[in-house]
Amino acid sequence: MSSHSERHHHHAEFFGKKVDEFFHPIETAQKKIAKSYYAKSQNGYAPVETITITKKQPVRSFGPPPTAPVAPPAQTDFSIPCHLLRVGDLVILQKRPTQIIRITTSAATGQHRYLGVDLFTHKLIEENCVVSHPSPSVVLHTMLTPAFKQYKVIQAGEDIPLYLQTEAGELKTGVAVVAQGDLTKKINDAFGNSPGAVRVLVISDGTQELIVDFKRVHGDYKL
């Protein structure tokens, strides 16, 4: 076959394929796919390599790990002007909760001096008030008084243990009651008349608690 005939044959075959692809696109594509799979099977088809992508972890800076915020401790005392204190009130003397039994005032300086009884150890404690000068013309005389906790009375009465409930819902028993003023009988009578509406006021010296007073709350209800 001459070179002219060969070129004519190749051109006819090329244009024939293009015309076939144009008029029969789906069948042509299927033939190409089948031919490709056949060639792979003849040459030994190798599976496609899988690629695993891992998320890069952020680089952590040096230093202590972050910590959760911690709630501040509950306040155990607060200051009060000396002219508001009276005999029988509770104050902090020498870092101890005490009840005032005597108040004296210096005529020269106006400074107050307190004598009290430790509510837990029953020892006498004496201390002067705190004097501060926030401005040249102002002089403040203050003392620390204990902060009270309020516990709900759950059970009370003669020959019955006193059961209390804290604000967090914890049940407590065996908390001592101050001996002055027949307070235990007053709490029992108040609970008998208004169960569920009685709250006791409690102070602490850091290791033990003591009931020093009580009150009734509005909205009495039966347990």
Rank of each mutant, 00 (worst) to 15 (best):
P146M: 02
E158D: 10
G181D: 05
E167K: 14
K185N: 08
A71C: 06
M143I: 09
G110D: 12
V177R: 02
S137L: 05
T121C: 04
R102D: 14
A190K: 02
K186D: 07
V70I: 15
P97G: 05
D182P: 00
Q150H: 13
T98S: 06
G174A: 07
N128K: 14
T121D: 14
Y114E: 08
R96N: 06
P73Q: 15
C82W: 00
E126F: 05
D77F: 10
V139F: 00
I100N: 04
V175R: 02
R113A: 11
G88T: 00
I80W: 08
G169S: 13
S132I: 11
Q99I: 13
P97C: 01
L115P: 00
L183N: 05
G181V: 01
R96A: 08
S137C: 00
L119H: 04
V175N: 01
L124M: 09
P146S: 02
I101H: 10
V117K: 13
H141I: 04
V178G: 06
H133M: 07
K95V: 02
H122R: 15
Y163V: 13
Y114R: 06
S79L: 10
D182L: 00
S137M: 03
G181E: 07
K95G: 00
V87H: 02
F148V: 06
F148G: 02
V131M: 15
D118G: 08
A71V: 12
Q155L: 12
F148C: 07
E170M: 07
G110N: 13
G181N: 06
V177W: 01
E158R: 10
E170L: 09
H83A: 09
L124E: 12
P161A: 10
K186V: 09
E170G: 07
F120E: 06
L164K: 03
D77H: 07
A107P: 10
A107W: 04
Q111W: 00
G110H: 12
R113M: 13
Q180T: 13
V117Y: 03
S79Q: 05
K186M: 09
V91N: 01
L115M: 10
K186E: 12
L144P: 03
K95L: 04
T166E: 06
A71K: 14
Y151M: 14
S135F: 09
H112T: 12
T145F: 01
Q180K: 08
D118C: 14
K149T: 04
Q111I: 11
G169P: 08
L183P: 09
L162V: 07
K152Y: 06
F120D: 04
G157Y: 09
P161W: 08
V70K: 14
V138Q: 12
A190I: 08
P69Y: 03
I103L: 15
V131K: 15
F148I: 09
I100L: 13
Q75T: 14
G88D: 06
E127Q: 15
T184H: 08
C129Q: 14
L162T: 03
A147W: 03
K185M: 07
I103R: 10
N188H: 09
E127W: 03
V87Y: 01
I187D: 01
I100Q: 05
T76G: 14
V87C: 05
L183A: 08
T142K: 09
V131T: 15
V175H: 01
E127Y: 05
I92L: 05
T109H: 14
G110V: 08
I160Q: 12
S137E: 12
A179N: 02
R102Y: 09
A147D: 05
L140G: 01
H112L: 14
I103Q: 09
L90H: 12
T98K: 00
T145E: 06
Q155G: 00
A68G: 02
H122Q: 15
